[in-house]
Amino acid sequence: MMTASPGSLADRTLRLLRHPVLRRLAQAFFVAFLLMVFAFLLIRLIPGDPAMILLGDEATEEDVIAYRKLLGIDGSIPSQFGRYVSNLARGDFGVSIRSREPVLSIVQKRLPISLWLTVTTIFMTVLLALPLGVAAALYRRTWFGHAFQIGASVLVATPVFFSGLVLILLFAVQINLVPIAGYHAGFPANLYYLWLPALTINFVLVPVLARILQSSIVETSSEEFVEAAIIRGTQGWRFYWRYLLRPSLAPTVAALGYFAATVVSYAVIIEIIFNLPGIGMTLVDAVRNRDYPLVQGIVFLSGLLVVGLTFMADLVNGWLDPRAKIR
């Protein structure tokens, strides 16, 4: 594209900086910085003195000072923020008040379970939503299309903590297909514990994704290049994949990137219902114990994860749909 372009180094650097991928990357870094600011501000929402809340009224002066130091709320606000940033840069996310363990090592210990849950869920989502979305688009004027629309609205609105309990009732209590709760590490044994939680989250995700795919295919099918392909006599798999499905996938992939955030979100409640000791359960415990640094760390890291995933989804998006690259 711009390999043979003349001009000074500065010119070329400038042009490189305008490259969409780099611009997206710069944006992602800016957003990550703001996430940090929000996470820092989060602890300011505590009404009153956090150290006093944690220690109670009979706390000694030394204890309060020590706790303020532990929470990173001693000194002026700008100096607090400076310390927060430099600590994060060194990978220091603070120390859990409850267990005195570094936040990062707690997260590292619990993260694999949540990641496995996320990956299993997304894999299942794609597997279920692709055929459903295509079918809903192709048979959109039949009873199936109408049932799909209504069913999707109902499923999307059903909270996971209810559908999860109903699924446990069906699969674990009535027919003993899954353990009621618990987890055992190691692939593929862990799938035995993960498939039902993943299915529960998919009760919400699959309808949304299938709906996006359906309307995207309907939109694509009215494009001129589809008509041209039909006129040229393109048929079979080549037609369906290249002219109908592939150009329609871009919004679906973009949605998948966004879905990762939703999965991480719902995983919190799902982990409690299915008793999976992942990040979600850690977070809920931390909220119950008023473990402020741990909450702060998990909130920040989850936001960071989502920014990273959205960035990657954007890249895949540009590759899938040439129309997205032009913009």
């Binding site: 996430l35 929000f38 929402l45 719902y266 919190v268 936001g303």
Partner: peptide, 25 residues
Amino acid sequence: DGLVNALTAFPEIILVLGIVAMVGA
């Protein structure tokens, strides 16, 4: 843009939980 993107980047339930942890359950 950055502000709104950052605020909406947090997974919804996690942000709500994070604020509830600070303000009160």
